[in-house]
Design a protein around this nucleic acid. Sequence first.
DNA 1: CGTAGCGTTGCGAAAATTGCACCGGTTGGG
DNA 2: CCCAACCGGTGCAATTTTCGCAACGCTACG
Lengths: 300, 300
Amino acid sequence: MRYLRTFELIDAVVRAGSIRKAAEDTNLTASALNRRIQSFEQEFGWPIFERLPRGMRLNPAGELLMQHIRLQRTDLARVQSQVADLSGERRGHISIACSQALLPYFLPEQIALYRAAHPGVTFSVNVRDRAQAERDLASYSSDLALVFEPVHLVEFDVLYALPQTVHALFQRTEPLVEKPVLRLRDCLNYKLVLPSAAYGVRHLLELGATRRGRTLSPMVETESFELIRHYVTRENAVGFQIPIGLNVGATDAIAHRPLSGKDVPPGRLLLGQMKGRSLPVASSKFGQQLVAALEARAEG
Amino acid sequence: MRYLRTFELIDAVVRAGSIRKAAEDTNLTASALNRRIQSFEQEFGWPIFERLPRGMRLNPAGELLMQHIRLQRTDLARVQSQVADLSGERRGHISIACSQALLPYFLPEQIALYRAAHPGVTFSVNVRDRAQAERDLASYSSDLALVFEPVHLVEFDVLYALPQTVHALFQRTEPLVEKPVLRLRDCLNYKLVLPSAAYGVRHLLELGATRRGRTLSPMVETESFELIRHYVTRENAVGFQIPIGLNVGATDAIAHRPLSGKDVPPGRLLLGQMKGRSLPVASSKFGQQLVAALEARAEG
DNA sequence: CGTAGCGTTGCGAAAATTGCACCGGTTGGG
DNA sequence: CCCAACCGGTGCAATTTTCGCAACGCTACG
């Protein structure tokens, strides 16, 4: 939008850190960009940037303004989405922050399902850990968040909560496959492949281990859930994952079994949005679809 | 703000009902204004006006856009108010929707008190009945509402609730003055001066009358609380009012006594804002002052 | 002490906005 | 039935705003 140009330019300067770099990004001259910033500050009544020898940085007033700019942008997107919905066509862009476990099966399926009905809708999928996801919502960087065991839960409006028991992954040839439910001690005899400390699965495992007076000494510790899933095919080890990240119908070399709730408490996979915000139509409808899909999983 | 010009122009067209009239209001030519509207609609992606032979009217998309425009404007005001507060100076504008009962004593005193501390702050006081006040909040026309017994209470965030017993007003020479608390039947022998049906005082009186199997037949029915207060000095009649609209220390020709709660239930004077909205600094601080003042009245 | 980066400014060129005159259409009254 | 009074829309020239270029002063860093 043309009338938002000034805000885009301010945002470009914030991101680039200097007028000259931002000028390149925006296909403008440094002088022109400089004057737009200056004239805006004059209208606004206060400077919004600190002038440093190395460039520009937002001052406190600028930080407040940036909140306004982000709100303004997303609210316009909401209006445009609602207007598109008025005329029957569903357009828009859906931005979702999610945990890694949703990447392999759940989200691809859900996004494809939604896009089959509404081809005009585009998606951004941002992988975020449970703390970052909430910051994403607060800064309007994402419309929806689908995360496992998030931390703060302020400013977070829970649309649906799906209980998820931690599952252990191992080669189908292991004797563990005989038991329908595993105890934590069954797994601790194996070499362990664990997610790093920032992740909810690890947090729950540590809780369970502490409760039983044990400690977890992983052989491989990683931020990649994909690596965990693939590693247990190569070495005789045990990994952990929540069921939504597992292909239940798969008949490949990997087996998985839930851990007993007596050892490791089940976590919650939370779908949520920023508290008090009214989402664009597309995001809102997609959120409803996700709720339905999660409900179906809860029953099944 | 310069970059908001397009929105101001759209708003002007909405208010004026036609481009040509709006052009006069905005010191522009009809052609220039017309082209700005057209180019905005093109950018926006949809028309926002219906073209009628007699002028322009918002279509549904335009109504949605106007919500955005109003939100955008008030949010910018909030940011500017917060920025002004950063540098110590308190500026801004406070818009308050209130019942008539607040006009004679309470609000003038509170506004003067606030302005003594912060001369940079300006006020709008809009007299609204209990239904309109809530609409004012929802459309961002007012920051705060101070109303007696409002109706809907959705989207209304109650900051403070002050119980208010309905008082009867009469000439000091009447025998009613002897009783510290009046029964409804004491008043019904007199000629009655009542507010019209939209007002909370009337609503409570009707409730009490119905409960006692009586009906209210007013001699004068009016929308003006001021007329009620003054009329009882001219004719030997009884009017009704809530205490916050009465000057407790006055020693003039009028006396007032509370009605017994057995007959007429006490109402609530509610201070509130729109649910989920973060107010500008000035409005927020003034709201806190009002809460303190109302609390003092509740104790006294 | 030079260099590289930064924000800032004067000035002519380029672009966007505006004003003016005018068109086609509808409404309402003589 | 026509004519005056509105209305929104358009072509074109004037005007205002914005932009690019070149240069300046400043600070940090090697």
